[in-house]
Structures are given as structure tokens and as C-alpha cells.
Design a protein around this nucleic acid. Structure first.
Lengths: 215, 215, 215, 215
DNA sequence: TATGAATGAGACTTCATTCAT
DNA sequence: TATGAATGAAGTCTCATTCAT
């Protein structure tokens, strides 16, 4: 309650915020340049600190990269997971919502470049690739799998191999993210994200639907 | 029949084969390490020449990379194009064959890692990305577009936006290639390529089919 | 007896003890790592303070090193000097005691590593080397010189050049200290300190003794 | 015998000579600055090459240091060993010659600074210390041991513990080398090398001599 | 007095590129 | 055409030192 009490707080806040600020800057630079061409100097400059400061919070350039990926990946997944577990309605509707949500994730930069970045560096960071597979992809597939299973139980969906159905539900979203990140700057016309997702839903869910199902 | 007579022949043959041998070696190394981590020393060693020799045939490391991509890309596309133009049968069958052919292209290493590699380096090589978009993707999409249009004319396929249909036909193949290249080493079980393609065809073509169409 | 009454006392005590505590910590770290590889962070941590605190008491890393050496050197020398001046007995006995005392100085770590450390950094710290030469070595040699002179006066010792005799009396002790510090960790068997000194005395004093002398 | 035949030879000679030239330059710089303060730039400049060239021949700065020490150490030891094995005469004379030879080794810079340098870096280079102990010191001690044993067999020398006798024979030489390297620049008068060795021989051999021996 | 976050100069090391042979 | 020794620019990382608190 004294006036002096807050000064150290502000200072401490800074210290705690630093890693996040650095990772925000790192995201921008890595997305823009890729791992190899990203300069620690650039990251530091964007975070408003000197290069040496990075090493107060991270062990190495690789460490920065991995921390950045993990933070974003986990954040995204938590949002997805929460929304999904709260859902109520038909399996068809749920799948639609899920696919649309996934589409949201890869709409705006810099996040829209994330899948390309992870793919690009998957060989250089085998552990990170394993992490993404385990913590993002497998978990995401599990969620999709629940929806697919539900639809099969209710008779909404056909009895196709679940694993393939899950991947085929996700594939156009991933494809879109990667395609846009890699090629949109060189394409004549912008990628019609909404149309792409809508058509995917149209074709995919129709192709999935059991002939004499409830819908 | 003299000893010296044959030497120049072998020599000349060698000389013409050099760039190809170098690009073969480059393919292996770039696929394995990515552009930044690939060493010209490694490429030279695998091609059985010295590092300096590379500069007799290519301007720079970037030049080697681009030449390698262009050569492979064009070769793949020519095969695809030829097979497609020779095709006869229903649009549905043609689309099936096309998708299966695309699946063939990304089955075996080192070619199976090609899409990931291009995606990975798309920011570093804007021109190369533009080239791939123009010479590979757009041309491939044109071919797919022809098939889709034919199916719509015959009433086999629904009247959805063609561009999206084309992309959605290709997306699972591209997804599969990239997924395997990036994550299969870390996955518990191997990717079921045939099952994936079969299920894609099953769902996609059913989702595409006009209700009262001829099939 | 109030709680606040004692605090400043402890505080002031602390304050005065700080430099000593820092130098103790510095001794350990410098001995372990050498000057270049010693980290001020380590020294601070061992002294239980933060790195910045070092700069309240010392100008620089070099300053810490020099202060540490000077403190230990002077302390050692005072002990030696005091003991020597109080001595009574034959020159032979005095020389024996002196050599044994010097041997004591380099027996236990971390002091046992001191000669090696000073030698190692003598080029980086010319002033410190000069200081050690002046305040340690020359003074020590003066003491030895007194004993030698006394022995020559009494006829116990031969009339050899005094300077060489002094150095030859000390050399095996210095040699032992440096040898142990540098090589004992890699040697099969431990260095027999007592045997070394005893044999030195046996040979050296016999070699020094005048043929028809009083002993 | 052709004119062109020699050109590549000269060129190859260069390549073969490079490591030696680099190690010569390294010796000077390391002796002058110590390991930590030695700059690869300096070494390169003195060898007349660029910094990168060092890495064509050595793995790292440490590698350069170790190679330099090994080369010199082995060269010195081979000379000593050869001379010793060829010797004929009394044990007393042999010991005298041996000690004088050792004195020669540490007379002139930059070699005269070698013992100090090895001692100084013994903690940073444990393997190198082990190497020096094994290949230099132990072998040297073995040679001295042969001489001592011979003198004891002939009855020239007293029956003292051989290990100590050997070390005590060497100690003044090592002491002298280290003392000069560390302190001579700060001393008023130059170190009388010959006098030191002569007096050592005088005292040590007399102290070693058996009372009723043949000499 | 004490802290510890921040700095920034400087070193080692890598490797694409060059060029004398 | 082919070599491979040599280059030198550039980047990551370290750590003594500073300074706001």
C-alpha cells in the first residue's frame, strides 16, 4: 500500500515478461526468415534488448526456436481442446465446427506461417518434430477421432477406417496453411479461405455421410 | 582401338554427365540436410569430385539447388502430363487415376521428401517458389481442372467451384507427402499410403458425385 | 536486546568481512580454474553474494586476483619470517627447519596450488609477478641467505656462492609444489612429500657441509 | 627432370610445411600470451596465412596448442634419449652430462618458457598434462633412474631412494626454467644459469657420493 | 550496501567462394 | 576440365562490467 511497494513490482514484471517478449519477436523473425537465416540480432532488436540478453533466458538459438514453437503450439491446442470438449450437437455439426476452428488457427500471420515453419525445420529439430507430432497432431487427431466415432455410433457417418477419415478431414486445412505460406505471394489471386473450407465441408461431409443415416 | 582413342570418349561422356551426377548428389544431400545445412563438400564428395568442380557447372549453392529442383520438377510433370493426356474413360475414372499417379510420385525417397523441401525453402527462394507454382502446381491444377470440367459436363460431378475442387482433390496427397517426410520417423506406426489414398478417393468422389448423375 | 539492536552490529561485521570472504572464494575458484577460466559469477556465488557486489570492493577481476595473491603471500611470509627470526641453534638445524617449514606451506590445498597459479599468471600480471618476486621470493631468499651466511661463518658450510646455495635449497620445495599441483592427478602414485623433503635435506646438507667443519 | 615437374613439388611442400609453420607461430604466441590470451588471428598473421587456414590443419585452438606441445616435447625428448643412450663413462660423469643437457634445453627462448607454459595450462589441458607426465617426465625420470642405479651398482652413489634422487637431480633445472620465465624480467640481475647448474652439480653430486666409494 | 538484469565488445569457428596450379 | 588450399565475411555465444532499483 506504500508508494515504494510498487516500484519493484513493475521491475519484476518486466523480468517475467522478457521471455514472452523475446518469443514474440522470435516468432516474427523465424517466420520471416526461417531458422537458419534468422539473426539473433534481429530478434533482440525487435524485442528492444541487446543480443546478450537473449542468453539470460535461453540456452541457444535452438532453444529459442523450440520454446517459441512449444508455447504457441500448446496455446493453440488448449483453445481447441476446450472448445471441443464443451461442444454439444450432432457429430456432423461438431465436425464442421472443428474444421472451421482449425481454419481459424491458420488464417492470420504470423501464425498462418507456423505449419510451414515446423515442417521446414522438422529435420533439423527431430525432438521438436516429435513434440509436435505428439502434442499437437496426435492430440488433435484424437479429438477428431472422437467426433468421427460419435458420428459412426449415431449412424451419421459411414464405417470407414477412422484414422484415414481423421487425416482426410484435416488435410485440406493443413494444405491450405502451407500452400498459402509458401506460394500465395506468387499467386495471381488471393486464396479464398472461406470458399476452400466451405467446399471441403460440403464434399467431405457428404462423402462421409451414411446413406440411410439420420441426417 | 588404341589405348588413347577411347580416353577422350569416356572423358567427353563424363563431362556431359557431370552436372547430372552433381544434381543427383545434391538431391540426396539437400533432402537430408535442408539447404542451409547442406555442405558443398558433401555434395562434391558424393559426386566423386572436388568442391571446386561444382563451380565449373553452377554459379553458386543457390544455383545448384534451383537447378536440382527444376530438373526434378520438370521430369515429374512431363510424366504426369503425358499419362494424363493419353487417358480415356469416365471423368470419375480419370480423376481416380490422376490422384493415384500423384500418390506414386511421393512414395519413394528421395523424391518423397521433395514437397517438404520445396515448402521449406520457399521463402529463401522466391523465384523457385514462383517457378514451382507456375510450372508444377498451376499446370497440375490445370490438368485436374480439365478432368473436373469434363465430369461436370457429363453430369458426373456436382457444380461446385472448380478451383476448390481441384485443390481438394490434391490436398490429401500433398498432405501425405509432407506429413510422412516430416513426421513419419517419429510416428509409432507407418503411414498406410494405399489406405489413405483409397479412403480419399472413396470419400472425395462420393462427395463430388451429382445425385442423379450417370454413375 | 531488541531485535533491531543487533542487526547493525551483525551488518557492520558483515561489511568488514566481505572482502575477506570474497578473497577466500576467489582463491578457490582461481586455483581451480585459473584466471581466464574463473567466472566472477562463481566467485560471487561461493561468497554468497551477487556478482555486482564484487565491484563494490574491487575494481576488476584483475584487482580481485591481485588482492587475493597479496593477502595470502603476505600472510604466509609473516608466519615464516616470525618463526625464522625466533630460531636458535646450529645453522644446519636452522636450515633444516626452514626447509621443512617451506614444505608445510605447500602441503594442503588450496594453498598447495598457489605457486603454480602465480607462475601461470606471471605474464598476465607483470606487476604481481614483480610483487611476488620482491615481497615473497627475495625476502625468503634473504632469510635463507642469513642462515647460509651463518653456517659459513661457523664453518659448517662450504664457501660456495650464496645466491646459488639459497636457490638450490628452495628449488626442491618449489618443484614439489608445482609438480604436485600440475601432475599429481595424473600420476599413478601419490607424491611422497616427507620422503622428498627428507632426501633433499640428506643430500643437500651433506653436499653443503664443509669437510673439516664442526658438525 | 622437366621444368614443370618441380612446380607441384614446391606447391606440395608448402602444404606439408604449413602445419609446422603454424605450430612455430603458435609457439611464439602461446609463450608470449598464454593459451587464453593468445589470438588465432595473431598466430595466423605470424604464419602468414588467414585465420581460416588454421582450421584446415587443426580442429580447434586447443588442438593447435596440444599439437605444438607434443611436437616440441617429443623432439626434445628424442635428442635427450639419443645422447644418453650413447654415453660412456662413470655414473657421476653421466649424471653431470645429463643435468647439463637438461639445462641446455631451457636456456633460450622460446623454449625456455615451455615448462612454465605447460605448468600454467596443466589444469585446462588434463590430457596434455597426462601426456607430458607420461612422455616427458616419466621417460626423463627413467633415464635419470638408469644413471642413478648404475652409480649405486658401482658404489659411486649412496643407497638412497631412487625416485627421490631422480627428482632432486631434476628439480633445480625445472626450478630455474620456471623461475626465469616468470620472474627474470622483474629481477635486478640476470640469472646465472651456468653458476646455478655448476653449484647444483657440486652440491648434489657431493651429497650423493658414497663415503668409501671408488671416486 | 546490495542486487541482478542488461550490455556489447570480442573470440572462435564455419563454409561458400576463389584461384593458382 | 579439375583440384584443393586458401580466404574472409559473418554468426553464435561468452562474460566482465555497468547501473537502475
Amino acid at each position: 500500500m506504500t508508494l515504494t511497494a510498487e516500484a519493484p513490482v513493475r521491475w519484476r514484471r518486466r523480468k517475467e515478461a522478457r521471455p514472452q517478449e523475446l518469443l514474440d519477436a522470435a516468432l516474427e523473425v523465424f517466420v520471416e526468415k526461417g531458422f537458419a537465416d534468422a539473426r539473433l540480432d534481429d530478434i533482440a532488436k525487435r524485442a528492444g534488448v541487446s543480443k546478450g540478453t537473449i542468453y539470460l533466458y535461453f540456452e541457444s538459438k535452438q532453444d529459442v526456436f523450440e520454446a517459441m514453437v512449444r508455447r504457441l503450439a500448446e496455446a493453440r491446442f488448449e483453445v481447441a481442446s476446450a472448445l471441443i470438449h464443451a461442444h454439444q450437437g450432432s457429430a456432423q455439426q461438431l465436425l464442421t465446427d472443428l474444421i472451421r476452428l482449425a481454419g481459424q488457427f491458420v488464417r492470420e500471420p504470423p501464425y498462418s506461417h507456423f505449419p510451414r515453419l515446423i515442417i521446414a525445420e522438422s529435420r533439423r529439430f527431430p525432438e521438436l518434430a516429435a513434440f509436435c507430432l505428439r502434442e499437437l497432431i496426435h492430440k488433435g487427431m484424437t479429438l477428431f477421432g472422437l467426433v468421427i466415432a460419435k458420428g459412426q455410433e449415431t449412424g451419421e457417418f459411414r464405417a470407414l477406417p477412422s484414422l484415414h477419415m481423421v487425416r482426410l478431414a484435416m488435410a485440406p486445412i493443413v494444405f491450405m496453411a502451407i500452400f498459402r505460406s509458401a506460394f500465395e505471394p506468387h499467386d495471381d489471386q488471393p486464396f479464398d479461405v472461406d470458399g476452400h473450407i466451405a467446399t471441403h465441408l460440403d464434399i467431405f461431409i457428404r462423402g462421409l455421410r451414411a446413406e440411410g443415416g439420420p441426417a
